[in-house]
Design a protein around this nucleic acid. Structure first.
Ligand code: ZN
Ligand code: ZN
Ligand code: ZN
Ligand code: ZN
Lengths: 159, 159
DNA sequence: TGCTTGTTGAGACTGAGTCTCAAGTAGAAA
DNA sequence: TTTCTACTTGAGACTCAGTCTCAACAAGCA
């Protein structure tokens, strides 16, 4: 809820109108850690079926432009979105077997990125750094047992 | 041409049949540094219009399974493929303005990745590390001049 | 030669995302 | 309030990349 209100204020300062539909989309988005666009569509429409798919996509794009939402192209499954507003920068480690996503920070890598771009005369704008592997459980489990990239993590349930 | 023959031999040891269609797809693929699936379809069909789209995709998947081709999801534009067979591991730096792609190696980052996964008890299988920024030219150029993510780099022209 | 299996072309199909447009709001002005 | 304008929306058609199906077609083999 706190995140929701912070974002609400940010949008106001940017002159972006927070309609009822947008508020619902945002409220559901901040409830997730990572989510796909279609998951969010489904989730939102379960609460209010009159909200059109296009509206969810438009709002997602809006929030992205406003710097509230980031898009992650994980190699397995469809792209993932994340409300990164008011969250420290982090990169991701994913279990290719069960789909668990871990967020990590590694300042030494971030520093080396600057060194790399300097080598080529580039100005660094952004980066993605994703590690893929097997979590401890999946290293030992029967590979036929675990489902591939299932459910996403829901942080809290907002009514 | 050398790469083509090396790959040809690798496929033979894996018992994968190199049909005329597959050979054409492969021959065109090794001519590129990075390419999209649809670009390769177009390219191949310009030489032999009887080759079906499905065949190009199937061959790409085949080469991927054989460890010959890698897929890169750059954030801008459609996914890119690369024949990485007999090439040293590298990561990528992309200019978001003109689309230039630079390959770089940074062993210290590779080492730190191992440290990260160890922290979480993971076994590292693979990773992607992409830096996005502005090349020297685009930092100074009028932003309206340069086209966005254009042409891909062709390494050699194979008849 | 026939048998078996793998491969292909053609085209239907899918899923994710975009676009269009008429109808519906929210403010701002009067 | 009413009116004007600009923004937003729902509905659904559309696009594009990629996948699937299947009948026809080769390769390799006995
Ligand atoms: Zn980072
Ligand atoms: Zn995250
Ligand atoms: Zn690397
Ligand atoms: Zn490369």
């Amino acid at each position: 809820m706190k995140r929701f209100i912070e974002v609400e204020q940010l949008l106001k300062t940017q002159g972006i109108r927070l309609t009822a539909q947008r508020a619902l989309v945002l409220r559901r988005a901040v409830a997730y850690l990572h989510f796909t666009a279609e998951e969010l569509v489904k989730d939102v429409r379960e609460i209010d079926a009159s909200v059109a798919r296009g509206t969810v996509y438009r709002t997602l794009a809006l929030l992205h432009r406003a710097g509230v939402v980031e898009k992650h192209d994980f190699r397995y499954g469809p792209p993932n979105y994340e409300v990164t507003f008011a969250k420290a920068h982090h990169d991701h480690l994913m279990c290719v077997q069960c789909g668990e996503i871990i967020e990590f920070q590694e300042p030494r890598v971030e520093a080396l990125q600057q060194a790399v771009v300097k080598r080529f005369g580039y100005q660094l704008l952004s980066h993605t750094h994703k590690l893929y592997g097997l979590c401890r459980a999946c290293q030992h489990a029967d590979p036929r047992r675990a489902p591939k990239h299932p459910h996403l993590h829901v942080e809290e349930v907002v009514a």
